[in-house]
Design a protein around this nucleic acid. Structure first.
Lengths: 247, 247
DNA sequence: AATGTTATTCTCATACTGAGATTGTCTCAG
DNA sequence: CTGAGACAATCTCAGTATGAGAATAACATT
């Protein structure tokens, strides 16, 4: 039997039925804090609970494509293509994680600059940006997925220029520092941060411009920068050591 | 309709059939080089080609459990529990990656110290450790998965004590350096490496013992160490900067 | 005009890194 | 048995990075 004969006689139903979904941890910075996009489930199971945007993959649809579609579809946010960074996070397949059937979920992590309020899509009764430090009860094992996504995002800030994806087209060093402080949840030394950012090759490049005016509470006009061409930060920008995480 | 009524009437077949597999990138150090475990496929499709060990998940089986089972089953290597580190790598779901049907594969990365030759299991016509720098043609998109696994392994050596998982119960600093040099593929400065390893808290701890004799080509007896209790290396042991990867 | 805020730049002490050299122990070839 | 070479372990030294604090100056608000 050669390969084409084999394929002609192949019956997909000989393998156990598993559903595959994608779930998206979409993060943004709003109102001074880190927020995650959640939808209120309009259907069973877990109707009424908040959940990550996501759903079943479609035939012929690639995984990242499904993640982007779910994000756009369930939130009404469209045309995200340019501004949103999206990457695979992890997969979850504990047998009883969905009461309906065996569901394996591939999670994706998305970062975006301050985005408008979402509007509810078809499956979602409601959609909103929730502060990550004040979360409602989540459906399925989405609390675990979200925790994983947050940790990944915090880590990626260290060695990639991802922070610029949370900022606008142009930004000041202070705004960039605000991104780090918000995502990491720690205050950073302004002077050292400034020195560090400018010393990492390719992280930011100057636009030659400054802000139109000083800050609302005073201070000089800040120089404006845009994202540089580096894909990795070298040397990395490390978080203050967390002794408890080492052992 | 409440949740239990909903579940009672739920029909899993309303969703498109997708098969879920796990594939394992199992790495070890043998014969002075980094090697990956490959099996020669005994069945269609891609019969005769080499592939990563893996297969369909079973009902009621968790993902990591499936990965461990496939590794043991298709290679004859059993009782791996204690000595093998295993972690999730990534998922692959391009629609046409398997000619039979839609297959989503969750890949796992496994590290182990020098292991014995595998013996072929049921599905595998043959199984062997292949040097990662001299690979045969691989089935499906396994070349991509393997490349991903190698990159992950190289990165994890930097900030986790993973290298000790490639060494035996006790090891010398030089042996540990050999692990880094083999996986990273670069020579390291012996003196600096030695200083660095001993300065990272919890990476290794002394056994008080030394090797029975000097090296085969001379040199004093080396002190023996065992893995310490650190889970993260701080400060990290960074690879020499690779300029081309930064931009 | 005084006061407070903030961007930016410095200083300085400490820590870490890469490169090279030194010391002393061991194996192997003759 | 001896000399040559290999190698573990330690040290030196210069260059670079980091943390903490301070100084300077431009701006806002009162």
């Amino acid at each position: 039997m050669n390969e084409s004969e084999f394929l002609a006689g192949y019956d997909p139903r000989m393998y156990p039925a598993v559903a595959v979904t994608v779930d998206v941890v979409a993060l943004t910075i709003r109102g001074g804090g880190l927020r995650v996009l959640l939808i209120r489930r309009g259907e069973q199971p877990h109707a009424g609970l908040w959940a990550l945007p996501g759903g079943f993959i479609r035939p012929g649809e690639d995984l990242p494509q499904a993640a982007a579609r779910e994000l756009a579809e369930e939130t009404g946010l469209s045309g995200l293509g340019d501004r949103v960074h999206i990457e695979q996070l992890a997969s979850y397949g504990t047998p009883d994680r969905d009461p309906r059937m065996r569901v394996v979920s591939i999670s994706y992590l998305a970062f975006a600059p301050d985005l408008p309020d979402p509007r509810a899509g078809t499956d979602a009764a409601d959609a909103a940006w929730h502060p990550v430090d004040k979360l409602p009860e989540l459906a399925f094992d989405h609390d675990r997925i979200l925790a994983h996504g947050l940790e990944r995002a915090r880590g990626k800030l260290e060695y990639t220029p991802l922070a610029t994806a949370f900022a606008g087209e142009t930004f000041t060093i202070s705004e960039l520092r605000g991104v780090y402080e918000t995502v990491w949840g720690v205050p950073l030394h302004a002077g050292n941060f400034h020195r560090k950012i400018l010393s990492v090759p390719g992280f930011v490049e100057s636009t030659g411009e400054t802000t139109e005016s000083g800050g609302v509470r005073g201070g000089p006009r800040a120089k404006l920068y845009r994202a540089g061409d580096a894909r990795l930060l070298h040397p990395a920008l490390l978080r203050p050591a967390r002794e408890e995480q080492i052992r």
